[in-house]
């Protein structure tokens, strides 16, 4: 039996035996369990008056949801990437920078690739996200999906990295004399896309944590 299973089993038996939560907490602390482990073990059971311990809802993992959220977050990643990429090419085209006149005929081809990706992936993400939100409203238990939680944290991780990288690049450009209107607009486009995604999923994860 794994230590976490032992802890869960002990907690269940102690509650069944009528021990108070304070007594259980003291016993586990004396045995060397960390406060967050003790709290996690006690929170697994509802603090209500009932002859046997009543389990709280726990996160679950489902292959079907792994498929669904895998596609949804891949669509989000493609949308964000190509949105920023296309914005940068448009900014290069429309905003002159006398010290950087780089243009390439491949800009047009890459821009077309980004347009094609946005036409496919942006509606895919929006429709799947809408379906997920609708499903969670009808069945709040869906918010406890472990897969969804992981994908949301991965999305938060990458959007936070993008924001930090964007800020670093902006400071570097300022120090290096490269902070032109063209650069500022590009940095802003990254901040808007990454920031929107970060703020949205940060509020989503709060709901997930509240539901778990």
């Amino acid at each position: 039996m794994r230590p976490s299973d032992q802890l869960a089993e002990f907690t269940r038996k102690a509650i069944s035996a009528g021990k108070s939560r304070e007594d259980i907490r003291d016993a586990l602390s004396q045995a060397g369990w960390a406060p967050n482990e003790v709290a996690g073990a006690l929170d697994a059971w509802a603090d209500i008056d009932f002859p046997t311990p009543v389990p709280r809802p726990r996160p679950y993992v489902s292959a079907k949801e792994a498929f669904f959220y895998g596609i949804m977050f891949a669509a989000l990643a493609m949308t964000a990437w190509h949105l920023v990429d296309l914005a940068h090419r448009l900014i290069n085209h429309w905003v002159d920078d006398p010290l950087s006149d780089y243009t390439s005929r491949y800009d047009l081809e890459w821009a077309r690739w980004s347009i094609a990706a946005l036409i496919v992936f942006a509606p895919t993400f929006l429709m799947m996200n809408r379906a997920a939100a609708k499903s969670a409203k009808l069945d709040p238990g869906k918010r406890r999906s472990g897969v969804r939680k992981w994908f949301i944290y991965v999305t938060l991780f990458f959007s936070a990295l993008a924001l930090l990288g964007d800020l670093t690049a902006t400071i570097y450009a300022l120090l290096n004399g490269d902070l032109t209107l063209r650069f500022a607009l590009k940095a802003l486009s990254v901040a808007v896309v990454a920031g929107t995604i970060f703020i949205y999923f940060r509020s989503e994860i709060r709901e997930v944590d509240d539901a778990a």
């Binding site: 949308t79 949105l83 296309l86 448009l90 821009a111 980004s114 347009i115 946005l118 896309v193």
Partner: peptide
Amino acid sequence: IGVLAVAAIAAG
């Protein structure tokens, strides 16, 4: 996100 995508596609 949807508005930005539509605007980017149109501008693109």
